[in-house]
Amino acid sequence: MTAPLATNAADLVAVSVAGSIAHPGFPGLPAEPYRLASDGTAFLLPTYGGIIYNVSVGDRAFGWAADCIHPGVSIKQPEDTRNRGLNVYACIGNRAKVMTGQAAGTVGVVTGKSGRFSEQVIIHFPKDARAKMAVGDQIIIRSEGMGMTLTDHPEVMLKGIAPNLLALLPNRREGARIDFGVTATIPAHLVGAGLGLTSEGGSIHMQSTDRAQLAERGLDKLRLGDLVALEDTDSRYNHGYLRGAHAIGVVCATDGPRAGYGPGICLLMTAPAGQLGSFITPDANIADLLAVEA
């Protein structure tokens, strides 16, 4: 079911981008650190950033005592324009290498991009390597994928996906349309935080307040790393509603208690008018496709 894809991968430029492991943060004083759940109750839970020792790509996306946790390691640059370069250049599936500290030399893989305003890149490293890491360790990424196109399907816009991952995605052709395998389809009314923001880097969230709706559609069983489709969602330049549009992304962050902030999804591709489709295949998860080391 995975047919070879014609791309311009031979013309892509491979370039280094880097960042350091980010420290988790909360709003500065006098603001309180508490946030509000969808029912108005205050909560205080771990959130994105830092080194997450016990949550990895491939694990469940729901059920953690957490607010939109990034699995593995989150990195960023302290200066805004450089950090934006890191976030836009890094592609899902790119290889990353630890350059400093006790885990120097360990190789990982980029699995997502998220944060309050698209400020962190998420990387999977084996758990034994994470135990040796420290906040501030430097990590370099071999960025390759920006500018990639599907030669036979030019209307499908690729978004931050590495050539090695694209080549592994289950796909099939339906006339002029190309379909990719996903674990689930998210209807437009469940697309939440991130609408209206740029689709170059960062993530868009699935709404998860209506648990009965999630269970009915099987969305409560999502895993981190799952490929999912977003119906009627146009993410060519910004995320927005458009009938007939389609987008495919990867679940990159866990669920959280806030309204509009269910699991975070990093976009991989989109098309505006039926040129892109999807079909259900249960094993469409990047942890399995890339055979990441636990």
Rank of each mutant, 00 (worst) to 15 (best):
D255V: 01
E144R: 15
I186Y: 07
P78C: 04
P4Y: 01
A103V: 02
V292P: 04
G101A: 03
A18S: 15
E231P: 01
P27K: 11
Q275M: 03
G112K: 09
E293A: 14
G108F: 08
A10M: 04
P257Q: 08
D11T: 13
A37W: 00
Y53E: 08
S114I: 06
M148H: 12
C68V: 14
L267Q: 06
T100K: 01
D283M: 11
V88F: 00
L12D: 09
K127E: 05
L242I: 02
V292G: 04
L242H: 09
A61H: 03
G136V: 03
A96M: 04
D288T: 15
R173H: 10
E155L: 09
L36R: 13
I122E: 11
G225I: 06
G105Q: 08
G240L: 06
R82C: 10
R223L: 14
Q207M: 14
H205D: 13
I21M: 06
R243C: 00
S143D: 01
H239V: 13
Q102N: 02
V57N: 12
Y241F: 15
F62S: 07
R172A: 08
K127N: 08
V73H: 02
H239I: 12
S143W: 01
F117P: 00
S208C: 11
S38N: 12
S114T: 10
P272W: 02
A212H: 12
D288R: 14
D39H: 13
N164Q: 15
L276E: 04
G25F: 07
E231S: 06
V107H: 01
G202C: 12
I139L: 09
Y241R: 14
V55F: 08
L165V: 13
